[in-house]
């Protein structure tokens, strides 16, 4: 399955470098302490410029998802994942049967290469013992 690659901007370089190292980054605001995704220099909650990168646990729950059955991306499963740190991002499910996935299922980040080799964060479901 080929995933399309991100269209980077100067501020996203650090984020994608970390992804190639298998690390999912979030931004955290030093002023209001909240974390957010997508990352940007200015906190979307309080507009502070005092933001810094933090490593996400990579654990979260499925907020919602779909399986594309026709057209571009057929067979992929875009999903909104709410990370344990709070933010929700659209990432997508991999290495699990979407037919078995339910909203609220626990997931863990799993990186996979996109078309140009850039690793991108996807998520796979955890079984009841908490293992991917």
């Amino acid at each position: 399955m080929t995933f399309s690659s991100p269209i980077p901007v100067p501020e996203s370089e650090h984020y994608w470098q970390a992804a190639n190292d298998g690390v999912l980054l979030l931004k955290q605001c030093a002023s209001c302490t909240r974390t957010f995704h997508y990352p940007r220099a200015i906190c979307p909650h309080c507009m502070s410029r005092e933001t810094h990168w933090v490593e996400a646990s990579g654990l979260g729950t499925v907020y919602s998802f779909t399986v594309i059955r026709r057209g571009p991306g057929t067979g992929t499963a875009p999903a909104f994942i709410t990370l344990d740190e709070g933010p929700t991002l659209m990432a997508g499910l991999i290495d699990c049967d979407p037919e078995d996935v339910k909203i609220g299922d626990r997931v863990r980040v799993q990186f996979a290469p996109s078309q140009n080799g850039q690793m991108i964060p996807l998520f796979t479901t955890l079984n009841e013992s908490g293992n991917a």
């Binding site: 991100p6 907020y63 919602s64």
Partner: peptide, 23 residues
Amino acid sequence: PDLAYSGAFPPMPVAGYATVAKR
């Protein structure tokens, strides 16, 4: 700007609205 932090899926309105419907 958010496309700089997403990959994986071609821009496809129906995928987003499908997640809305499912929720």
